[in-house]
Computed example of a mutant assay.
Amino acid sequence: MQQENPSRRRFLKQAGLGLSAALVSPYFFSCETKKVGTTPFHNLGIQLYSIRDLIAQDPVKTLETVAKIGYKHVETFGLDPVNGTFWGLPISDLKKVLEDNGLKSHSGHYDMSNYLKRGATSTESIEKYIEIAHKLGQENIVAPVTPMDNLNSLSVADYQYAADQLNKAGELSKTAGIKVGYHNHFWEFRNFANGTKGLDILIAFTEPTLVDFELDLFWIQKAGYNAQSYFEKYPGRFTMWHMKDMDNQYTTPVVGEKYDQADFSEIMKQIRYTEVGTGAVDFVNIANYADKSGLKYAFVEQDDIYLPNKFDSIKKSFDYIQKNIAK
Rank of each mutant, 00 (worst) to 15 (best):
A227G: 00
G102N: 07
A162G: 13
T62P: 01
K244M: 04
P90E: 08
G102R: 07
Q221Y: 10
M246L: 07
E139G: 05
G78K: 06
N150Y: 10
H183P: 02
V156D: 03
E171I: 15
A21S: 14
S122R: 06
T121G: 08
E139W: 00
D93P: 03
D111I: 03
V254M: 07
I132W: 00
S229A: 14
Q3D: 06
R8P: 05
P81M: 09
K128S: 06
K269I: 08
K323R: 15
D216Q: 11
E275L: 05
I126C: 09
M148Y: 04
E275C: 01
K323E: 15
R9A: 10
V82W: 01
M112I: 04
W87Q: 04
E32C: 07
E171T: 09
I55F: 03
N248E: 08
D58C: 01
Y71P: 08
H106C: 06
N140F: 08
D247T: 04
G119M: 10
Y159N: 02
D58A: 03
K168T: 05
K13C: 01
K68A: 10
P144L: 00
T39Y: 06
S107R: 02
K233G: 00
Y320G: 14
Y161V: 15
E266N: 13
N191T: 11
L63C: 12
T123Y: 11
K296M: 04
Q270G: 07
V156M: 00
F186M: 06
T62L: 00
L103D: 08
F299L: 12
T121C: 09
M246A: 00
E127R: 08
K135S: 06
Q160K: 14
D200Q: 10
Q228L: 11
L136A: 01
S265M: 05
E64K: 12
V97T: 05
L295K: 08
I91F: 06
M148F: 12
T239W: 04
G236C: 05
L154E: 10
H109A: 05
I267D: 09
F238D: 05
L202N: 09
Y230E: 00
M148S: 07
N101H: 15
L307Q: 14
S317A: 14
Y297N: 14
S20D: 13
H109M: 09
M268W: 08
A15C: 03
N43H: 10
K315S: 10
S113P: 00
D247V: 02
Q322F: 02
S105E: 01
W219D: 05
A22Q: 15
E214Q: 13
E266M: 10
T76Y: 02
Y297F: 13
D245E: 06
P208E: 13
D93W: 04
L54R: 08
V284Q: 15
T38Y: 08
D247P: 08
V180E: 03
K13T: 13
L307I: 11
A157S: 12
E214S: 05
H242P: 11
